[in-house]
């Protein structure tokens, strides 16, 4: 069902888009296009992961990312299992490396990890033979989210080259923003970000993007507008005064969205705080691709699992 040759993925793991080449990113997106047919079909079952073992190891709560990975692996017939930090040996003080090695030695081909600390997937990857997919680490990266974002944009716009992308909100704590900045820059997009000065990480402009303190400046002529979820607890840490004021200065409503190009795509990694970062009217407008992103998330994850497991079996278990 694949057209032409699918390139074999060079690295064992997917740790971040910082580490990935533009070629690898396009390879994943191209493969995801094909996978989307499977999701849309009446028979959501392929044999791509038959005989493969996939484990999700989540040290943070997650509903959509975990479900997305789980369905992706099930649509492709893998054996899969899930571990949550709360129910695991982590509570007994086992180290990440020891937990990882235990999973590895049970014959696992891919470990999908979400962890509150940046770099945890990198540590795991160095210590296991299985492929490691980063499903979000601290404030560092959430590469599969960015891949699905880029897939969604490529589907609608053909490519990211020369596109103006505005990312609005809490950039400081956002692994989604970081992954998108790395990935989209590699594909030739021009990125602007806007957010309260307390939520813009230092030195961000050194990555080659534009940083604004008003949402309007970032939105002008944008081809893609991406809102980020604002964690309500940030307000308690003194990073902004009230949700009300945040929304007044950085919320995206119809009027502000009009600053972007007429055919601009509105995106959000979800879940949306309606009326805070996005007004309800824009969430549900024709330019909104928030629901499409969810479908594309499964397609991108299917593509990744397929590409990573084509490397061959988890060898040398002894």
């Amino acid at each position: 069902m694949f057209r032409g040759d699918v390139m074999v993925f060079k690295s064992k793991d997917l740790l971040g888009l910082k580490e990935l080449s533009a070629e690898d990113i396009m390879n994943i997106i191209d493969t995801a296009k094909t996978m989307k047919y499977v999701i849309k079909s009446n028979n959501k079952k392929t044999a791509h992961l038959q005989g493969k073992s996939i484990v999700t190891l989540f040290y943070e709560n997650s509903t959509r990312t975990r479900l997305s990975f789980e369905l992706a692996s099930k649509y492709m017939s893998s054996s899969s299992a899930n571990i949550s930090a709360s129910s695991s040996s982590v509570a007994k003080g086992e180290t990440l490396i020891d937990t990882g090695k235990t999973i590895d030695m049970m014959g696992t081909d891919v470990i999908i990890i979400r962890h509150p600390m940046s770099g945890a997937p990198h540590l795991l990857a160095k210590n296991v033979k299985a492929s490691v997919i980063n499903a979000g680490d601290g404030m560092n990266e959430h590469p599969t989210q960015a891949l699905l974002d880029m897939f969604t944009i490529v589907e609608r716009k053909g490519s990211l080259k020369g596109l103006k992308v505005a990312i609005v909100g809490d950039i400081y704590h956002s692994r989604v923003a970081r992954s998108n900045i790395w990935g989209m820059s590699k594909l030739g997009a021009e990125i602007s970000v806007a957010g309260p000065a307390t939520l813009i990480p230092p030195g961000l402009e050194n990555t080659g993007i534009k940083v604004f303190n008003t949402v309007q400046e970032a939105l002008i002529d944008a081809d893609v507008v991406m809102g980020l979820r604002i964690q309500l607890e940030r307000q308690k840490k003194g990073l902004f005064p009230t949700i009300r004021e945040y929304s007044r200065f950085f919320g995206i409503d119809e009027k502000r969205l009009k600053l972007a190009k007429e055919d601009a795509l509105l995106m959000h990694p979800g879940p949306v705080n309606r009326g805070v970062e996005l007004s309800t009217s824009v969430v549900d407008c024709d330019q909104s691709f928030i629901n499409e992103q969810v479908t594309n998330g499964v397609a991108v994850r299917m593509a990744l699992l397929y590409l990573l497991t084509r490397r061959g079996p988890n060898e040398d278990i002894n």
Binding site: S118, D137, G138, M139, N140, P202
Partner: peptide, 13 residues
């Protein structure tokens, strides 16, 4: 250290 590198690594500075 808080700076460009902490931003790149997503670590608290």
């Amino acid at each position: 250290n808080e700076g460009y590198m902490s931003t790149v690594l997503g670590l608290k500075g």
